[in-house]
């Protein structure tokens, strides 16, 4: 059996990204919106991002000293929402009329477990905790959203989930 380690001295933590080797990432060979499920997932995900951004705004409005620390996280969520919006087909709005943003999304395949956000608790520490729980719920929901979506959309959703998982750590370590 031949040795097929990368090289005798692979670069540690260096160019390990083998994304390219695995093909479909970002290639425009199939539209992301092959079906209604993908559209539903995109809409829910966009709404969930907007709801979370609103919650961060609420937090920094009430506790301005958190602004500097939360701003980078909010910026990520704005980027997430923008990336998701871009995958909507032309002419499709992010929010279907029967499902306003932030409403509990219970049954559809893209359903997020995030309910309409409860008002933030009355202390900055508890607010950070609540935001952390919200991020965690989003990250968990991403795992379920991956089923039966196109590879590029799956990779985007997985990346958003990883970003949110990282946010939970930052928020916990701010405490």
């Amino acid at each position: 059996m031949r040795e097929h380690g990368p090289t005798r001295r692979a670069l540690l933590g260096g160019s390990l990204s083998l994304v390219a080797a695995c093909g479909p990432l970002g290639r425009a060979d199939s539209p992301d919106l092959g079906n209604d499920r993908e559209l539903a997932i995109l809409r829910r995900a966009i709404n969930a991002e907007e709801a979370l951004i609103a919650r961060y705004k609420d937090a920094t409005g009430r506790y301005p000293h958190l602004e500097a620390r939360l701003a980078p996280i909010v910026a990520h969520h704005r980027q997430h929402a923008a990336a998701l919006r871009r995958r909507l087909p032309p002419g499709v709005t992010p929010t279907p009329s029967e499902s306003p943003p932030g409403r509990f999304a219970g049954r559809s395949p893209g359903a997020s477990p995030v309910r309409v956000p409860a008002p933030l608790p009355d202390s900055p520490e508890l607010a950070l905790e609540a935001l952390g729980s919200h991020e965690r719920a989003l990250a968990t929901a991403r795992i379920k959203q991956l089923r039966d979506v196109s590879a590029p959309l799956a990779q985007l959703l997985a990346s958003l989930g990883a970003s949110e998982a990282g946010h939970t750590v930052l928020l916990a370590e701010y405490l």
Partner: peptide
């Protein structure tokens, strides 16, 4: 966007 190269972020 952990892991995603820039070209993949905004999709096709």
């Amino acid at each position: 966007f952990p892991g995603l190269p820039p070209r993949a972020i905004y999709g096709p």
